[in-house]
């Protein structure tokens, strides 16, 4: 079996008394992986540790089997990194900045220009290439950052909150780029604190909270972690009072509440048994509609984070 693209072994980073990342052990294989967590959860710290921009307090990280360190710069030929920080090469034009990045990577002047043009085309910015970065909108600079990450056609993309500040069209374009990179066999670590952003690019994810890995895997696997957590089902029924009274007798129903009109919200620790029971009511024509609220990724995250706090 080949080595994972990213490997973290007990990776930890403290900023004085503050924990940035706590003993993260994880392997990432090719494909798109979402790195999800609220602000301050350790996403950017992880990105910086993976790129050698910060040193771990404990543990280590590997990219393509190479231990990350300032001296292992050759591995960056295979890595494209878009930092969360703004570009801040204000005096440069978009194309000049990209050409500079390509030249520092070893391209000659002509090759660097060609590479910059190709990267700008990928993010749909070829017509704005001569604009200075200082005069670009936040969304445009975000696209320049993504173009910079794509510049060397790397196998691994590390994108730190790349959709921040992008307009809907740019977001769609970037999401498609990320998906295409994963579909072509590449690896993308895509960080965001917004669930639907991650959901739009992948169903594989790492959930970080307070520097700890809260959950890892596919969305469906993560949902499986909720088996023992309260789940919510919302039904609409003209007989909601009778149904609520009957269900409150069951040990697997932990709560009921009444919503607007005919809505009834049920909370359970055993979703399957509740669904079986509701099926019986449905068969009798007593339930007009039903929605399992907890199938939404947002609620998965909320539940996991809530349990960790």
């Amino acid at each position: 079996m080949s080595a994972p693209v990213i490997r973290c072994v007990g990776l930890a980073r403290w900023y004085g008394e503050v924990q940035g990342l706590s003993g993260l052990t994880v392997d990432v294989s090719p494909g798109v992986v979402g790195l999800l967590g609220p602000n301050g959860s350790g996403k950017t710290t992880l990105m910086r540790l993976l790129t050698g921009l910060a040193r771990p307090t404990r543990g280590h990280a590997e990219l393509f089997g190479t231990r990350v360190s300032p001296d292992q710069w050759a591995v960056f030929r295979r890595v494209g990194y878009a930092p969360g920080d703004d570009v801040h090469f204000e005096s440069e034009r978009g194309s000049d900045f990209l050409a500079l990045m390509a030249r520092v990577a070893g391209d000659g002047p002509m090759a660097a220009r060609a590479r910059a043009r190709a990267a700008l085309e990928k993010v749909g910015m070829e017509e704005l290439a001569t604009k200075k970065l200082s005069t670009m909108s936040k969304g445009m600079r975000q696209r320049i950052k993504v173009a910079q990450a794509l510049l060397l056609e790397p196998e691994l993309l590390l994108l730190d909150e790349p959709l921040n500040g992008m307009d809907p069209v740019s977001r769609r374009k970037t999401i498609n780029l990320v998906r295409a990179h994963g579909a072509a066999g590449g690896t993308v670590l895509f960080s965001s604190h917004i669930l639907h952003e991650v959901e739009s690019v992948t169903d594989r994810m790492l959930l970080l909270h307070h520097g700890r890995l809260l959950a890892e895997g596919r969305l469906s696997e993560i949902v499986g972690l909720l088996e023992r957590k309260p789940r919510r089902v919302q039904i609409s029924s003209g007989s909601r009072r009778e149904i609520a009274a009957a269900l409150l007798q069951e040990d697997y129903v932990s709560g009921v509440s009444f919503g607007d009109d005919s809505q009834l919200l049920l909370e359970t620790r055993d979703l399957n048994r509740l669904l079986d029971r509701l099926q019986a009511y449905g068969g009798a024509g007593q339930i007009e509609s039903m929605e399992i609220a907890d199938e939404n990724l947002e609620s998965v995250f909320d539940t996991l984070v809530g349990s960790a706090v």
């Binding site: 910086r48 790129t51 050698g52 921009l53 300032p70 960056f76 920080d85 520092v104 990577a105």
Partner: peptide, 24 residues
């Protein structure tokens, strides 16, 4: 300035030894 703004990250994650941006 590059460190304060975090922009040095772009130069330090190029496939080149760190003395290259330093000397440049």
């Amino acid at each position: 300035e590059l460190y304060e703004k975090g922009a040095i990250a772009y130069l330090l994650t190029r496939p080149a030894p760190r003395w290259v941006p330093l000397l440049g």
